[in-house]
Design a protein around this nucleic acid. Sequence first.
DNA 1: TATATAATTAGATATATATCTAATGAGTAT
DNA 2: ATACTCATTAGATATATATCTAATTATATA
Lengths: 206, 206
Amino acid sequence: MKAKELVPIQLEKIVNYHKALADPTRLRLLLLLSQGEMHGQALAEKLNLSQPTVTHHAAKLREAALIKERRDKNTVYFKLNPEFISSGAEASLQFIFSKGARNMEEKSPENSLKESVLRNFFSKDGRLRQIPAQYKKKLIALQYMVEKLEPGVVYTEKEINEFIKQFHEDFATIRREFIMHQFMYRENDKYELNPQELWTRWENII
Amino acid sequence: MKAKELVPIQLEKIVNYHKALADPTRLRLLLLLSQGEMHGQALAEKLNLSQPTVTHHAAKLREAALIKERRDKNTVYFKLNPEFISSGAEASLQFIFSKGARNMEEKSPENSLKESVLRNFFSKDGRLRQIPAQYKKKLIALQYMVEKLEPGVVYTEKEINEFIKQFHEDFATIRREFIMHQFMYRENDKYELNPQELWTRWENII
DNA sequence: TATATAATTAGATATATATCTAATGAGTAT
DNA sequence: ATACTCATTAGATATATATCTAATTATATA
């Protein structure tokens, strides 16, 4: 747990899924929610926790997409997101048994390249120092950023610009690259992620 | 993470399963093992870790029954225990969706009773202060201890005695109780756990 | 017996995180 | 406006844990 390591997105997602479930309080919370919707106060009572602690756990579960929330007046109701609970389990099994990842070697050139690109072109706080000139490296950098967008969500151009500005000032160029290399799809100034299969390669998982 | 909480065994098992998978290094390790058996040194190299760190992770994975080991000369080979990997995932899904746990209430009398027995009859280091006289409480204490044994393992009488002595001096009485209440099965001074269904009740999970 | 190799244990250290209290924010109702 | 309620954020603290190096143990071989 010493150095802040650079963990590939897919791997990180699986880790977060399991982290979310690796705590007895959160499991109890989910078990409660399996009986139906419940709001924060009720959870705090039933679980014998303070409200802030419930908020804390809810945040973790939300990040792992294990629960959904809705707000009514000033009360927040939580409920399970069952789809994601099982799909996460499936994903991690697939990952471990590496179905379809036969031709993925731990130390393939792709991986060391990816590592070095992420290390060299991104600063510690996650900003892109400069857009790589070399084609392959540029793709790696683009993919790294685009993976932080939510699949299925329709973004406005403004939102995309803001998103890209997190990483680099030149949002116009990068936005164009996103489209050009098929990471995203545009219609009437609305942007959406293309299906991952279009741009993910198994080689990049580890 | 403040007070050392008393976590029921089944819940703890699911937590440990997910903890084991909640670390990128361990996932990489499993992914490597999915290609086949590998020994410690090789893992250390491939993962860029020191040998002690590999031992550390291997221990976690072994505790969660995710890998198996065999020793040849002075080399230890690790391999996946695929059965457990998927059964753990299944168990946790079952748990969360609490199939068959309909009649389990968070604050059922059973649970508060269990909690109070565990709190009052076991000291902080896990020893049994005294054998509860009351039937229901005695069962709870016995179950708590017996759950620390490994299913499927055949123990000698001596081993069972040693095991019980961890908790209480009077191993003879407790050993007899184990048999009497169907927690264990004996033949020719060999002891084995009975199938859990025989003595676990869903009410006791939370 | 002495030496070599692999693994584990012990101990140190830095990071992560579960929990609390106190303060702040958000929304409603009087 | 004021007070009330639920939720979140900030900050503090204790525990857990991932990693390393050094020391020890286990097994094999010369």
